[in-house]
Design a protein around this nucleic acid. Structure first.
Lengths: 159, 159
DNA sequence: GCGCTGGCTATAGAATAGCGCAGTCAGAGG
DNA sequence: CCTCTGACTGCGCTATTCTATAGCCAGCGC
């Protein structure tokens, strides 16, 4: 296993093959557009119904339909039947484990927007229901150390 | 200050105004495309020079030029002069504090790609230089509690 | 003063994203 | 049966993204 430090050297090896092995690119295949993030935001805020996604995001129905279809195909949402009393059965879209696993990314982006894109102060704040303290996304290793960007090494697993 | 729980109710209030106060949308104004994330990835991997960005991302020079211009304008990168011995002065692009603050988001997306988009196993792994353990992005409150998606409340700050 | 290298810009084209608007479709209530 | 609501689909349009190819410019070394 190679150790790359400073991580800058990684760029020397990438040339063409990076898209095959970079997990970020695989993530971006599903996520790299504005409306996908907005639909996921609504899902994190508890939205399940088509109508809630369109009203919550301000996107057109056509855009939401496309995103939702993609997200179901990619396994971030599942389609489920539901029926309200006196109504016919309809479908709703529920986050899968994969979708829920994106929550740290959502928090990270939201908090970054709070702090570094502050044309006006943040109006919504995410807090820990248990203690009321605001939440943030942090980078941590499996030994529970907080890790700054300078303390990260990239290792190439040569197969 | 209103407490919203379940957070789903948030969608009821949003109608049109959400883009004004949602920090995620402000973040997406800069970030919502594939090439921006790729350029930032290279910056996190230590790239500073135009050439390193193009070779590392596989994007065309035109795309990189546009992204880099945007990222400088948005304050995530700064342009600095540098001069290698026997070379003329050139410019390089260095992450600002704002740019570095996106690192948790980068890690979160990268790790999510590892785990949930695994057409083939992850080839690059980010580890803590101090102890060698792999890193991940987690959501935590300022009282140092780990917070799951179910334990999060959204509070509206009414101004 | 010529070539080379790094760092761009210009142009043209394909694909995708997103909008507004209009229409469809299923089924419950009247 | 007719209407209403939620959940879509289709069309026409524009803006943005990204690619490919080509060329420009500065200045160091020869």
């Amino acid at each position: 296993m190679d150790i790359i430090h400073p991580v800058g050297r990684l760029v020397e090896w990438s040339r063409g093959e990076k898209s095959e092995w970079c997990s970020l690119e695989r993530a971006l295949d599903v996520l790299a557009n504005r409306s996908t993030f907005l639909v996921l935001r609504e899902a994190f805020y508890g939205a399940r119904r088509f109508d809630a996604f369109t009203r919550g995001t301000g996107l057109t129905e056509a855009s939401v339909a496309k995103r939702v279809r993609e997200l179901v195909a990619a396994g971030l949402l599942t389609r489920q039947d539901y029926q309200e009393p006196g109504e016919r059965t309809r479908q709703e879209y529920v986050l899968t484990e994969s979708g829920r696993a994106l929550f740290p990314a959502f928090v990270a982006l939201q908090r970054w927007g709070d702090e570094f894109r502050e044309d006006r102060p943040a109006v919504v704040e995410l807090v820990h229901a248990g203690c009321g303290a605001p939440v943030d996304a942090v980078v941590r290793c499996t030994h529970a150390h907080d890790v700054t960007i300078d303390q990260v090494e990239a290792r190439l697993r040569t197969p």
